[in-house]
Design a protein around this nucleic acid. Structure first.
Length: 432
DNA sequence: TCTGGGGTCCTGCTACGA
DNA sequence: TCTGTCGTAGCAGGACCC
């Protein structure tokens, strides 16, 4: 089914010279992937996410959504809303593999694919016309191909820019109801020339970049819909929201968005953070955690072929107040010991006595390992940590992640080597 | 009631060198 | 030599996205 906004009846061809952007969004992706492995759960409310007291919902099947459950909701709250829901822990690595296969299907249509996350991507099909036909036909065939190949459904938005295509794909989605999911249109088209008819009646919170804080400010200005926003002068928005944000929202409210689909977005930072099952007050314990996280970050930097200069420590206290402390090194590094030393130094400036619920380490200011210029320090480096890291990487490649780790991260629970996605949706309850 | 983990981008402030 | 200005880098925090 296609729902077209605007008159497409007289001329089904996409107007010459207008970009044709697709936004493809997998329907309840993590939950749908799990249902393929657990078909007996089909029709039941299924929640993927952390099951502990501090966990959150990562994805909910449409049956679960009918109870008002949505992603990022605290798991305890979801449990309260739907006590008979099935909780699944989630398998980040598996979702990554499925995602990669789906993205490959997208790249059969156009090389201009910009993945936004595991479950959605923008495609610029403006130049794919001769090979694959009109954008709307491409959207339908792509949906069919994903369904027949992976047995997963997705929703597609077609429009002349990214932001309208994204709103369109949302409009194409299935809807949850207690009687069962109601299928959506599958493909929604915002026809060039009809952008404002589609856009202006929408609630302003639907715009990209309008979260709770911006929404509160806009409500104070009497703005409820995108149309209300468009009626405001750009200067008023800039005064209320700042230069960049104000101008950006002003453009969006008029349906304008000239951002290109970027297939090769460069990585800006690599980080690891973890919420503890219980708050920590002891500097030594936190020091070990900082070493463990630094090790994970350094290991990922090396695998990705990046080095970084700025180390940032993130601390969330028991009262949820969050601070960051960062410092920039003289030269870039991917050495675990360098990052750990800096993270511990930053940790020393913080008083953990009130209780720390989350600790994070990240490295930014990245550059390509291959183009790294040796600093004087590195050129004369004789501490052996680089060789040690290479040896650790080799051992992990042969015997697994848990085979080896920094001794300084060893606690009473033994060696726990962090890996991306290990604890994506909150700590497991330890019974403490 | 309780609020994850991976990120990006922007703003305001301060320090510093030209 | 002193002072003001300007651009830039670094840092901290906030907001937002999936």
């Amino acid at each position: 089914v296609t729902r077209a906004v605007g008159d497409a009846s007289s001329e089904p061809a996409w107007p010459e010279g207008t970009r044709a952007i697709l936004h493809v969004d997998m329907d309840a992706f993590f939950a749908a992937v799990e249902l393929l492995r657990r078909p007996e759960l089909r029709g039941q409310p299924v929640i993927v996410g952390g099951d502990g007291a501090r966990g959150v919902v990562a994805a909910a099947s449409y049956e679960a959504r009918a109870y008002g459950i949505h992603s990022a909701m605290p798991s305890v709250q979801a449990r309260r809303r739907c006590p008979h829901a099935v909780f699944l822990p989630g398998d980040h690595a598996h979702y990554g593999e499925v995602s990669e296969r789906v993205m490959t299907l997208f790249r059969e249509v156009t090389p201009l694919v910009e993945p936004l996350s595991l479950d959605e991507a923008f495609l610029d099909v403006s130049g794919a016309r001769r090979l694959h036909g009109e954008a709307i036909g491409v959207a339908h065939r792509l949906r069919a191909r994903v369904e027949e190949t992976e047995r997963l459904t997705c929703s597609v938005g077609v429009a002349s820019n990214k932001f309208l295509a994204k709103l369109a794909s949302e409009a194409a989605k299935p809807r949850a109801s207690l009687a069962g999911p109601e299928p959506g249109e599958g493909v929604t088209v915002v026809w060039p020339g009809a952008e404002l008819d589609f856009l202006h009646p929408l609630p302003v919170a639907r715009l990209w970049g309008v979260g709770p804080a911006t929404l509160a400010k806009l409500e104070r200005l009497g703005v409820a819909t995108v149309g209300d926003l468009a009626a405001l002068p750009a200067e008023a928005l800039v005064a209320a929201l700042g230069r960049a944000h104000g101008q950006h929202l002003h453009e969006l409210s008029h349906g304008r968005d000239d951002r290109a689909v970027e297939p090769d977005r460069v990585l800006k930072s690599v980080g690891h953070e973890e919420t503890f099952a219980r708050d920590h007050h002891d500097p030594d314990t936190l020091g070990r955690e900082a070493v463990r996280m630094s090790d994970a970050v350094a290991s990922r930097l090396r695998r990705a072929g990046f080095v970084g200069r700025t180390v940032t420590l993130k601390v969330r206290f028991a009262d949820f107040r969050t601070i960051t402390r960062s410092s920039t090194l003289d030269g870039p590094t991917d050495v675990s010991a360098d990052i750990a030393r800096e993270a511990k130094r930053l940790l020393d400036t913080i008083d953990p006595s009130q209780g720390v619920r989350l600790l994070g380490v990240s490295v930014s200011n990245l550059s390509d390992d291959a183009t790294r210029q040796l600093t004087l320090d590195e050129a004369v480096r004789e501490d052996g940590w680089e060789e040690a890291d290479r040896a650790i990487d080799d051992i992990r490649a042969r015997f697994g992640r848990q085979a080896i780790g920094p001794a300084s991260s060893l606690g009473e629970t033994g060696l726990r080597v962090k890996q991306r996605g290990d604890q994506q949706w909150g700590p497991e309850d330890t019974g403490e």
